[in-house]
Nucleic acid binder design. Structure first.
Lengths: 169, 169
DNA sequence: AGTAAGTAGCTTAGCGCTAAGCTAATGACT
DNA sequence: AGTCATTAGCTTAGCGCTAAGCTACTTACT
């Protein structure tokens, strides 16, 4: 009736069953696939953004600014928080994007320690093109499932994510 | 009726809807959650293996040898292929594991270019303990869902993975 | 006002990875 | 036997990240 058991994770589960039949590998079937999907789709996103001159990490910065709305301005601190990156890592990404003319760094008028990072005109058009390419890549991959399955999957993942992220220190 | 829309991915989708209502962000609801789950669970696995003196990458090497069955021997080439790693990266992992006394490198009797990587006694006991800790961490995270939901999720992910991995060069 | 604790962003050292290139050995084809 | 493409594993340079520590500035408390 259902899928005939034949993906790489099934193979791993079978191997474990042969050598350690005492193990309960049920959870591995879920997270093993999540790990592999994350890696495979990450590679595809990288390829989707490349024609626009962006790495995935750089796109993420521009996209965060873009969807914050006008005036497309956030502090490095806000960005590194949202993107779960250390401030050191953020400095590097902003350096690259600034050199490419996609963002601008200016002093925060209310706090002389701080900066404001703003999308340039070029940054705005670049991210608006790239976001479509990324969504296309995701939609193509998802088209393996029908609409009902996709909704079901999104719901189950939401439940798993809210129960997982943040919890457990 | 269903979940009340309130995870970080929903927030991102809402932001996009406000500034770019033309975008179809359906696929993002699936893959955005997969990316975040992969990262969150990856961190947890790291913490689960740490008490056994292993990083996640090192555990993966030992686990691959372990589930290959006796005599727990594979070539560096087989390992780097299975683990989707370059040979350079594999060299580094094997160096660390060999220094820790968890694996042994010996010449391949049939091919003088090659090596055989074998689990030591210490490597075998270490991985047999660590695998349980990792599975526990996964099972705990998965316990947010009931058994039926977990099965459904595993099936949907299998279908998505087989349609994605490998495909699309 | 004066001081101490906290915060913003940057710098540096170190880690683990990839890409590219190397040597030695193998196997297929003449 | 002799050549030549292929393969195994290692080395090196470079990349992007984290952790830790720095300076400059701000905020809360006295």
């Amino acid at each position: 009736m259902s899928a005939p058991r034949k993906d790489p994770v099934d193979a791993i589960v079978d191997q474990w069953a042969a050598v350690r039949p005492d193990l309960d590998t049920k959870a591995m079937e879920v997270f093993g696939r999540i790990f592999r999907l994350s890696r495979a789709m990450g590679d595809r996103m990288e390829r989707a953004y490349a024609p626009h001159g962006l790495s995935r990490g750089e796109f993420d910065v521009l996209a965060t600014l873009r969807r914050s709305g006008e005036p497309y301005t956030l502090s490095p601190r806000q960005l590194s928080g949202t993107l779960m990156l250390t401030t050191g890592g953020m400095t590097g990404r902003l350096d690259k994007l600034e050199r490419a003319g996609l963002i601008r760094r200016s002093p925060d008028p209310h706090d002389r320690r701080g900066l404001q990072v703003t999308l340039t005109e070029k940054g705005l058009t670049t991210v608006d093109e790239a976001v479509g390419a990324g969504l296309d890549a995701e939609a193509t991959a998802l088209s393996t499932l029908n609409a009902e399955q996709a909704d079901q999957l999104a719901d189950l993942l939401r439940e798993l994510l809210t129960g997982t992220e943040g919890t457990g220190r």
